[in-house]
Simulated scan of single mutants.
Amino acid sequence: MTIPNQNSLNISGPADANRVGVQIGNWGGLVTDRQAFAIDSCSETISFSYAVPEGVPIGGLTHISEGVSYPVFRTGVPGVGYVIGIRDPNSSQWKSVAPPQTQIFPGPGTGSVAPTTLGFTAQVKFIATDRIKSGVYSAPLQKVATLRVTTRTGKPMASDVPLYIKAFTVTAATQGCSLTQGAIQNINLPPATLHSFAGPQSNSVQSVPFSMSLTCDADVSVYATMTDATTPSNTGNVLSRSPDSTALGFGIQLFKNGESSPIKFGPDSSSIGTLNQWYVGKSASTGTVFRIPFVAKYIKQGAEATAGTLRASSTITFSYQ
């Protein structure tokens, strides 16, 4: 069985406009074969049918549709994955093709009497898995699952039937930005003493400004997320000390210039809605430049403190929506 789909898929707009885990447009296809298996036997009838996925799902990524959770598999095209839904033609309830296998018959709407012929309705949906970069990409005909039927004891009743999605091409013309200043920066805060702080949870008098610049295509909404490079799971507002730091009771905070609240950190992800992602601005035309100023400051975290060196690092991820 081969699930039909568009021969050519076209993507345009900002590079991160397709939300990760969501179907891209209405791309996909559906096929029904009511007699995929026919058992030429008077002594035995089909008891179970299964779909066994061919690929390995992308870890931590699922697609939800009509209350069904689907693992997402790679197509080989960067940023584009697929999910497979399957059901008996007599059933209205979709099931996700997921490891290690998915039972199709018996199921809702299929009746209780095992048939001598059995079919499937299968659908593919194409899902955003990451940023889709401009380019032309080709995905070959690929086997995505194996369909099989067995007796109640697990004995095969017929030869397996492979399930394919046909070859397709993706042409992406996406918009984004280029980082034109500040890609790698070493920021040296001057030495601070205890007298530089008003007390616990206060910032130092000392601070250092820094900035970065982006040059963008037209009509791109730019968002940003700062990530703690030492502890990427940190969602607070104080950078983790690097292992070679010796000072205790102090930390480093980053501020957007002119703001009194420090930046909260989030995952290193360009996906729409990433935790603690903030809005930078929207480009009016090709060549729009965004200069993003920041300030770094010490913070005294508690009553007890020990002098020494303090190092921390962060990364920034831009999202083009």
Rank of each mutant, 00 (worst) to 15 (best):
M1Q: 12
T2Q: 13
N10G: 11
S12M: 06
V20K: 13
Q23P: 01
G28D: 08
A36G: 04
D40L: 01
S41E: 11
C42Q: 15
P57T: 13
S65H: 13
E66D: 15
E66A: 12
S69R: 03
S69C: 02
P71E: 03
T75S: 03
G76N: 14
G79F: 12
G85D: 05
Q93D: 10
P106E: 12
G107P: 09
G107Q: 05
G109D: 05
G111P: 04
T116S: 13
S134F: 11
T150L: 10
G154V: 04
K155E: 13
M157I: 04
S159H: 13
V161G: 10
P162K: 03
I165C: 03
T174A: 02
Q175G: 15
G176S: 08
Q181P: 00
G182V: 14
I184C: 01
I187D: 00
H195F: 03
H195L: 14
Q201H: 01
Q206H: 05
P209Y: 02
L214I: 04
T215A: 03
T215P: 00
D217V: 10
A218H: 13
A218G: 12
D219Q: 11
A224I: 10
T225M: 06
T230P: 10
S240F: 04
S242T: 08
P243W: 07
S245G: 03
A247M: 08
A247K: 02
L248S: 07
L254W: 04
G258C: 12
E259A: 11
S260G: 14
S260N: 12
P262Y: 07
I263V: 13
I263S: 01
K264S: 14
K264Q: 15
F265N: 08
S269G: 06
S270N: 08
I272Q: 08
I272D: 06
Q277L: 10
W278R: 04
K282V: 15
K282R: 09
S285T: 12
G287L: 02
F290K: 03
R291F: 10
P293R: 01
V295W: 11
K297N: 02
A307T: 15
T309F: 10
L310N: 05
R311S: 13
S314F: 06
S314I: 02
T315S: 01
S319R: 12
